[in-house]
């Protein structure tokens, strides 16, 4: 009996630091799941795919999301819209800032993941730093773009007439394939800064950072459902992203002209807005702007009756 315990003995002695044989610890690998409504479910389809880096290393088993995952994510985004758009702009700003804080705290993890996905150390560090700064940038804009895009309009009747931007609703986004972290954050941030909620399809070939970023979102006071992150194939999901009647705008970040034409056609079904951010270098200074927020805003104009418009002494 005692002979059979030799194998385990070596493990114990190793644990005490007195063993002579090296026992390699089994690495605990992370399960990369999708992010819907503040939860981390697996895809309902049960499918997955294995992205590979340039060295041929398998990165992970990643969920191959289906149209039903997308449908569920839209339901979550729609449910979250009222609360998120109704928050004080200043509070949205605080939450975006908190996201930046959490991202900064996990800096090394993101650099590591980017390097696994073929980035050099210098490039990875630059990308994470820019991503944090971009969140801070849009955090600052949360309560300022309204002033920029609002107007008081001259009208030839007894009305006080003004226009203000309001969030359009649920935005579906197919994120850039390159710049898998910075690109993702650059398209999400202006959308949610403006009070919209969104469903994002992460980079197909480099999905790791998107899922880890979901963990950042989950620990940064962002209500569940405001950002929903799926992984999978744009070729499979693009048409669903644009023909869902409960989606108000779609953002597509690649140059595939067939997909762009299809999106233009299908968007006509419910007159959703479609934007192609396909020329953008996400590291450039021009890739952050309040006009990205403006893209997913609707302008509401109010005609407020007044007795005597000239009485105010203004030229309205």
């Amino acid at each position: 009996m005692s002979k059979t315990s030799v194998h385990t003995t070596s493990l114990h002695t190793n644990g005490n630091g007195t063993g002579t044989t090296e026992t390699k610890r089994l690495e605990v690998l992370k399960t990369y799941k999708i992010y819907i409504g503040g939860q981390f479910p697996r895809t309902e389809s049960g499918r997955y795919y294995i992205p590979v880096n340039n060295e041929g290393k398998k990165l992970a088993n990643v969920c191959l999301s289906s149209r039903k995952d997308f449908r569920n994510a839209v339901v979550a985004a729609r449910a979250a819209f009222g609360g998120w758009s109704g928050r004080a702009a200043f509070n949205r700003s605080q939450i975006l800032y908190r996201m930046a804080e959490m991202l900064e705290g996990r800096r090394m993890q993101f650099i590591d993941e980017l390097m696994q996905q073929d980035a050099s150390r210098a490039a990875a560090e630059k990308e994470v730093d820019l991503a944090v700064d971009r969140l801070i940038y849009y955090a600052g804009w949360c309560d300022k773009y309204q002033q920029l895009f609002s107007s008081v309009n001259p009208v030839a009747s007894s009305h006080f007439n003004f226009s203000v931007p309001e969030p359009t609703g649920v935005v579906s986004i197919i994120a850039p394939q390159q710049d898998s972290l910075l690109g993702l954050i650059s398209v999400i941030s202006p959308v949610i800064a403006g009070g919209n909620t969104c469903v994002v399809l992460a980079s197909e070939s480099k999905p790791l950072c998107a899922v880890t970023f979901a963990e950042v979102l989950n620990s940064s006071d962002l209500p569940g459902g405001v950002v929903n992150i799926l992984t999978g194939k744009p070729s499979e999901l693009a048409s669903w992203f644009v023909d869902h009647m409960d989606v108000n705008a779609t953002i597509y970040c690649e140059k595939d002209t067939d997909i762009q034409r299809m999106m233009r056609e299908k968007s006509a079904l419910n007159l959703k807005r479609v934007f192609f951010y396909d020329q953008t270098d996400w590291t450039a200074a021009e890739s952050q702007s309040p006009y990205f927020i403006f893209d997913t805003q609707e302008i509401k104009t109010t005609w407020h009756p007044v007795e005597n418009i000239a009485g105010a002494g203004g030229g309205y």
Binding site: R71, V74, W240, D243, H244, M245, D246, L269, N270
Partner: peptide
């Protein structure tokens, strides 16, 4: 074949 919205 299209997912619907309560708006309509």
């Amino acid at each position: 074949g299209l997912y619907q919205s309560g708006n309509y």
